[in-house]
Amino acid sequence: MSTYTAEPTIVYIAGYGRSGSTLLDILLNAHPYIFGAGELTEIFEAAAARTPCSCGQPLDACAIWSYVLNHLPAHTTPAEAEHLTRRTETPRWLGGSPRNDEAYGLLWRTIFQAIAHQTGARMVLDSSKNSRNTAERTAALIRTTHLPVRIIHLVRDPRAILYATFRGSNRRLEQEGHAPTRRTAMLRVLIGWMMAHATVERTRAAYPHIPVKRIRYEDLTGTPALTLQQIGGFLNIDMQPVINRLHTGAPFEGGHGIGGNRMRRAGAVHIRADRAWEQALPRYAHLLAWATWPLAHRYAYDLAHPNSAPQGAST
């Protein structure tokens, strides 16, 4: 494979799960300068469990991930790397332990460099987001790797997230189909949505020199070409190769991503907005969604109207 010798840029998809990060990762992976790594924080757990890459091979048999795993810092085992990652990226009050910034920074700088070396990518897209065990990942990568970082803050209507919860987890959906969830689980999801986005806002305030671009799922699926142009301007690259694929109707492939939802493993991917929640979300869930105000209001979601599309532009 070709190599790119300059330091790679980390493009981090921040936010909460079920917001379209897998779709965005797959789209951007179609650009020749970008490698969509998926939920990169899961690399060591996936390797231990022999969870396949989206190419279908276990990580230790995939040409990209086997190379990365074989180029960890000296004397660092995957198990040690997983422990170091979890204790650094998990907030103290959720079970994180005293961090070792030097070791963490060396580990993840080495990983991003190995990915860039093996793929030839100038930018490595990490869609690990900021839920519970990864709440501090964005800040940790900024603070310790000494690599350029750009953040795409991906948001989605909290009512759509609730509906996804109502249908059940991605894993259960793959195995069983519809899997209703308790109302208390919905409340936990709303708390997670607020905490994840509050973490992004806090990181943005703590590191004002780091470029951040907010993108909404509704814009990505509703006006994908325009949204990709905006992302291209943010990343200082021409997104026309990806937009051309959209215009021709060419499918997008899952690439070599780690984790993500069943979309990545379903073969060819086409953009389709999921707005089923507008008709199917129970009334009590609409009421629960008010717990997310004022962040939902900040992101231009009108919780007073059940079928309201977001107004205004991504920032």
Rank of each mutant, 00 (worst) to 15 (best):
Ile10His: 06
Val11Arg: 04
Arg18Trp: 00
Ser21Gly: 07
Asn29Thr: 00
Pro32His: 09
Ala37Ile: 11
Thr51Gln: 15
Pro52Leu: 09
Cys53Tyr: 08
Pro58His: 12
Leu59Ile: 04
Asp60His: 06
Ser66Arg: 15
His71Ile: 07
Pro78Phe: 14
Pro78Trp: 15
Ala81Ile: 12
His83Ser: 10
Thr88Gly: 04
Trp93Phe: 15
Gly96Ile: 03
Pro98Ser: 03
Arg99Thr: 07
Leu106Ala: 10
Gln113Tyr: 01
Ala114His: 01
Glu136Val: 00
Leu141Asp: 04
Arg143Thr: 11
Arg143His: 14
Val149Glu: 00
Ile152Asp: 03
Arg172Ser: 11
Gln175Phe: 02
Pro180Val: 06
Pro180Thr: 03
Arg182Ser: 15
Leu187Gly: 03
Val200Arg: 01
Arg202Gly: 04
Thr203His: 11
Lys213Leu: 13
Leu220Gly: 12
Gln230Pro: 02
Gln230Phe: 07
Phe234Ala: 10
Leu235Pro: 11
Gln240Ala: 09
Gly249Lys: 03
Gly257Asn: 11
Arg265Tyr: 09
Arg265Gln: 12
Arg272Leu: 13
Arg283Val: 10
His286Met: 04
His286Gln: 06
Trp290Tyr: 15
Trp290Ile: 10
His297Val: 03
Ala300Gly: 07
Asp302Tyr: 08
Leu303Val: 00
His305Gly: 02
Pro310Ser: 08
